[in-house]
């Protein structure tokens, strides 16, 4: 299969193989305590991060804490959220580092990465544009539409990230099982199976 489409699956595959060749990757994959601790910490800190973020989003949607200024919510809640975010990202990277090849070829992981990019663009857009005139709507019980839209987008994308992330555990769309042409393409299975056969 020479036509690789809009992305180059063998590049991703080679990167995953390179990580897989690290002794520390194998050690983490086979560890007795560290892997479960990293996995649990990832889940706990994502609850801290998304949980706190959801409160701010619900406030901006005009659904919760309607009489608390948004700036007060963010100044009190966001530091917790940032702490959760940092540990969540670090443990997430470690989880990928432990099982790079299967994860890189997981369609759920790929959906998750796309959603993470959408969430990042949404956050950038919020800080760049939407929050510029915050003084105007800071104390409004129901902020203007563009604020509510970014908040809804944030809730939707992070919910999607969590769901897709959870699904990585399941093997329904793994490359070592017969898959539809779409999954074979989207997960880059051809490259993985080719490499295994060769």
């Amino acid at each position: 299969m020479n036509d690789t489409g809009p992305y180059n699956p063998s590049l991703i595959h080679d990167f995953a193989l390179w990580i897989d060749s690290h002794a520390w990757s194998t050690a983490l994959h086979e560890s007795l305590w560290v892997y479960p601790l990293v996995e649990s910490t990832h889940v706990l800190t994502l609850m801290l991060f998304v949980g706190m973020l959801a409160m701010v989003d619900l406030r901006m949607l005009g659904l919760a804490f309607r009489h608390t200024p948004v700036s007060e919510m963010t100044s009190r809640i966001l530091p917790w959220s940032v702490a959760g975010f940092v540990i969540m990202v670090l443990t997430g990277v470690l989880l990928f580092y432990a099982i790079p090849v299967r994860t890189a070829h997981s369609i759920w992981f790929r959906v998750k990465v796309i959603l993470l990019i959408v969430a990042a663009i949404n956050a950038w857009w919020f800080h760049r544009r939407v929050s510029r005139d915050r003084e105007r709507w800071d104390s409004q019980p129901k902020p203007p539409l563009n604020v509510r839209l970014t908040a809804a987008m944030s809730l939707a994308t992070w919910s999607g990230v969590i769901i897709a992330g959870r699904m990585i555990a399941y093997n329904w769309f793994d490359c070592d099982r017969p898959q539809s042409a779409f999954v074979t393409w989207a997960a880059g299975c051809a490259v993985e199976l080719q490499a295994e056969a060769g």
Binding site: P36, E39, S40, V43, L44, M47, R166, A169, Y170, N171, W172
Partner: peptide, 17 residues
């Protein structure tokens, strides 16, 4: 309580696979 939940979710459901 949360840790108990996490422990349960560390395994995938039998019926899925």
């Amino acid at each position: 309580l949360t840790l108990m939940g996490v422990q349960a979710s560390a395994h995938h459901a039998f019926g899925a696979e």
